[in-house]
Nucleic acid binder design. Structure first.
Lengths: 257, 257
DNA sequence: CAGGCCCATAAGTATGACAATAACACGCGG
DNA sequence: CCGCGTGTTATTGTCATACTTATGGGCCTG
């Protein structure tokens, strides 16, 4: 049997690949991604009952073991809930764990729209602003040095991929410097947002945009280095808003290749 | 076989029960909770390899199916990763999905310490402040009415449990009114924080504390009703900080029963 | 000494049988 | 005729076993 049969249909493999995920390393992962995408895309509506496992078994051509492990994974992420005699129900959206990297990836597979990117930017602002403020109070010299290094690397980045990598690393260090384990936990979210932004529109090839982006990150690093929470908050807010504006603007008036 | 054999050791069953979770509805959930708690509590260190499944099978006295589904669930929550020939490795903490309700519950099972509650309060401040600000811009009349109703209910609550319920409902409505699906996704987190706070110290039986708590929530509702994001931010920050201070203060100088 | 082949080991997959659960329909009694 | 307990049955949950695949590390060869 051709294991990749069902996947060619998906359009978002690019993003999945860029973000380092491998949707088909084994059978169960393959089923997981197909079902996850089907649910997130609304193919199985919230509150509805999934087909019984006999039907799914036939559809995917896998063993019950594989199917059940895939469904258990979906249950662990809050997408479904199985009950004997009832069937397996798709949970309401507010039960879904949107901070899960896979769930986020499935959202992107159906094409990130502006309102989704906006929601992403809004949570990032909330969390990363606090992270920046806390980092300003708690960061040690090593971490400040690492932040400055990230900024330098961003400024000198040759390719959009490199730029995104250093950008992500910068935000990761800020989260770590905040000393709050929850802050670090949203790196999956940041990663997705940056991957999307970088796919849609990277500042690397536009010197003015690059300068602006680097500058605002440098201000974050400086504020943290000087232990100034208010300034760190403000600069972080600008950095995220700016990235969103650029991507959103680019989406509305489709770009050159 | 006695299914609940391994559970009696846990001390945090109270919180699990209060938060409406049932750690032992079926075998796989039982194994899941034991393993999850063992990992979170550091019994299996980050980066270490779990015992091979043959050993775990023997320890839990369950079938391979059950064990594997439990492990798959842990993997879905980012706690472990299985690789052929290597074994099943405990991932570093920053890969754990701390926004998952189960993972949070396991943290509480080992007794919430002040620094954990602080971290919780910090993320809540970040996210819920933004949620309140957005709600001020987007809430409709229905939602504002619901918020006011929650405040009234809080003021008239007879028992700590009732109070916590209305408190949670209030924050849930704010998240919903923000129009941002991610905001609603952290209700698990809020639920835990409130459950903890209510377990440690409820304002219900202290008239002055109750008045203060109700007042700050009323100010949030009013700010949202008047479409004033800045005031909503400020009041929400105070509400969360206040709840944390009360619980933390109570923890340091142990209370009467 | 370097590089590729082989093997032991642990996870992954398959299969078929049986147990537990709970909605629903049926029939009994009021 | 209506309400209530009970049995039926569909669906998930659990078990046992056998086989397949992936891979790190040692062995063998060049």
């Amino acid at each position: 049997m051709d294991r990749s049969a069902g996947r060619a249909r998906h359009s978002g493999d690019l993003i999945a690949a860029l973000s380092g995920r491998n949707p088909a390393r084994n059978l169960h992962t393959d089923v997981l991604w197909q079902m996850g995408f089907a649910i997130v895309s609304g193919q199985y509506a919230e509150g509805s009952i999934l087909p019984a496992d006999t039907e799914l078994l036939e559809r995917f051509g896998v063993s019950r073991t594989v199917l059940r492990e895939a469904l258990k994974t979906l249950a662990a992420k809050g997408l479904i809930e199985a009950r004997a005699r009832i069937g397996t129900r798709v949970l309401p959206r507010n039960r879904w764990n949107l901070f899960d990297a896979d769930v986020l990836a499935w959202f992107f597979e159906l094409g990130p729209d502006v309102s989704f990117l906006r929601s992403l930017a809004e949570v990032r602002i909330g969390i990363e602003i606090e992270a920046a403020a806390l980092a300003a109070e708690r960061a040690d010299k090593e971490q400040v040095k690492a932040l400055v290094a990230c900024v330098e690397n961003m400024a000198g980045a040759e390719t959009p991929a490199d730029f995104a990598r250093y950008d992500l690393e910068f935000h990761r260090v800020v989260a770590e410097a905040s000393g709050n384990p929850f802050m670090a936990s949203i790196s999956a979210l940041v990663e997705m947002a940056l991957t999307a932004a970088f796919t849609i529109s990277s500042p690397v090839n536009q010197p003015s945009a690059l300068a602006v982006t680097v500058d605002v990150h440098r201000r974050i690093a400086e504020a943290i280095g000087q232990g100034d929470p208010a300034a760190a908050r403000q600069a972080m807010r600008e950095a995220i808003a700016q990235g969103f504006d650029r991507a959103a603007g680019r989406m509305e008036q489709p770009a050159e290749a």
